[in-house]
């Protein structure tokens, strides 16, 4: 069952990566990156379930926080605040 989850998530990551590479403007790429961050957080939690390791949950939490801060920084840069 969990292998099916991994397969679907890998397809989703590939789709978002295509937009990350193609994206005509910079905000397109940043939106794709934001989506990739969220998908990766879910993937990390699933990996924690798969390997029976609690440490992956902590990594997922930190990854979510860092991705949020990164996207906010880029948005602030677009507005001219940085």
């Amino acid at each position: 069952m969990i292998y099916v989850f991994f397969g679907i998530i890998i397809v989703a990551i590939v789709l978002a990566m295509i937009r990350l590479i193609l994206g005509p403007t910079t905000p397109d790429r940043v939106v794709a990156l934001d989506t990739l961050t969220t998908i990766s957080t879910a993937l990390l939690v699933l990996l924690g379930l798969f390997f029976e390791r609690f440490i992956y949950i902590d990594v997922a939490l930190i990854y979510a926080v860092l991705g949020f801060v990164g996207v906010l920084t880029v948005a602030r840069y677009f507005e001219g605040g940085l």
């Binding site: 905000p27 934001d34 926080v65 949020f68 880029v74 948005a75």
Partner: peptide, 23 residues
């Protein structure tokens, strides 16, 4: 983690939409 994602995702997309409209 779920609560954090539920709060942070709308905030970041709002800021990003504002910024991309502004440029």
């Amino acid at each position: 983690i779920a609560a954090f994602i539920l709060i942070s995702n709308p905030i970041s997309s709002h800021a990003l939409a504002r910024g991309s409209h502004k440029i």
